[in-house]
C-alpha cells in the first residue's frame, strides 16, 4: 500500500504542477510541453486505478496525435510572442472576470459530481460491469459500450464525423492558377508525348510553346 500511495502522490503532484505550469509559463511551446506531461501523468493515474485501456488510449490519442497538432500550430503561428505581449499589455485584466467566472463554474460542476458520487452512489450507473475483476478492463468496456450504450456511442461517432467534414468544408478552398500534379498523368506519360525529334533548318531555330 505504501508503494501505491507513493506512486499516486508522485503522479498527481506532477499532474497538478504541470497543469499550473501550462497557464503560468510565458513561452507557449513550453506550455504545450507541460500539457503533454500533464496528459502522461493523468494516463499513469488511469493505469493505477486499473483502467489500463483508457490510459493507453489517452496516450495514443491525446499525446500521440492531439498534442502534436497543438505543437504544430504553436510552432508555426509563432504564438509565443503574442502570449508575451498579452501578458505585458494592460488590457489583459479585462479577461480576468470572464476567466474567473468560467473556472468557478467548472469547479462547482466538479464539486457537484464528486459530492453526488460520494454520498449518493446509486444515482450513478458506474457500478454495473466495469468493476468486475474477473475479466479484463478492455473486455468489460467493450461489453457495455457496444450493448447498453450502443446508441450513444454511435451518435458520438456521427457527431465527430460531422465535425470533421465541417472542418474540411470550411477550410477547403479551390485556388485558381495553382499548378497541380496528377499522378496518373505523370506515370502514364509515354515517350511519344515527351520527346519530339525535329529537323531544324539552318538559321531558323526552334519555336517552343508550352
Amino acid at each position: 500500500m505504501i508503494a501505491h500511495a507513493i506512486f499516486f502522490y508522485t503522479f498527481s503532484i506532477i499532474a497538478v504542477v504541470s497543469a499550473i505550469m501550462v497557464t503560468a509559463s510565458k513561452n507557449t511551446v513550453h506550455s504545450v510541453f507541460f500539457l503533454i506531461l500533464d496528459f502522461i501523468s493523468i494516463s499513469c493515474l488511469f493505469i493505477m486505478i486499473g483502467a489500463e485501456f483508457l490510459g493507453m488510449i489517452m496516450l495514443i490519442v491525446y499525446v500521440g496525435a492531439v498534442a502534436v497538432l497543438f505543437l504544430f500550430v504553436v510552432m508555426m503561428l509563432n504564438v509565443a510572442q503574442q502570449k508575451n505581449q498579452w501578458f505585458a499589455a494592460k488590457d489583459s485584466s479585462k479577461h480576468i472576470p470572464v476567466g474567473l467566472l468560467i473556472s468557478t463554474l467548472i469547479f462547482v460542476e466538479i464539486i457537484i459530481v464528486i459530492g453526488g458520487w460520494k454520498y449518493k452512489p446509486e444515482i450513478f450507473d458506474i457500478n454495473n460491469s466495469i468493476t468486475q475483476t474477473s475479466i479484463s478492463n478492455t473486455h468489460s468496456l467493450g461489453r457495455i459500450l457496444y450493448t447498453d450504450y450502443i446508441h450513444i456511442f454511435q451518435i458520438s461517432g456521427m457527431i465527430l464525423l460531422v465535425a470533421m467534414i465541417g472542418a474540411i468544408v470550411l477550410t477547403f478552398r479551390q485556388r485558381s492558377g495553382v499548378k497541380r500534379q496528377s499522378y496518373i498523368k505523370q506515370i502514364s506519360r509515354e515517350r511519344a508525348e515527351g520527346v519530339e525529334v525535329i529537323e531544324v533548318g539552318t538559321n531558323k531555330g526552334v519555336r517552343i510553346d508550352d
Binding site: 510541453f33 489500463e52 493507453m56 495514443i60 500521440g64 502534436v68 478492455t138
Partner: peptide
C-alpha cells in the same frame, strides 16, 4: 501486460516528440 499492443503503439506514437523537440 493486458494491453501490450496498445503500449507498443502508444510508445511508437510518442517517438515523434524527440524529433519535433
Amino acid at each position: 501486460i493486458n494491453v501490450g499492443i496498445l503500449y507498443l503503439f502508444a510508445v511508437s506514437s510518442l517517438g515523434v516528440y524527440g524529433i519535433i523537440m
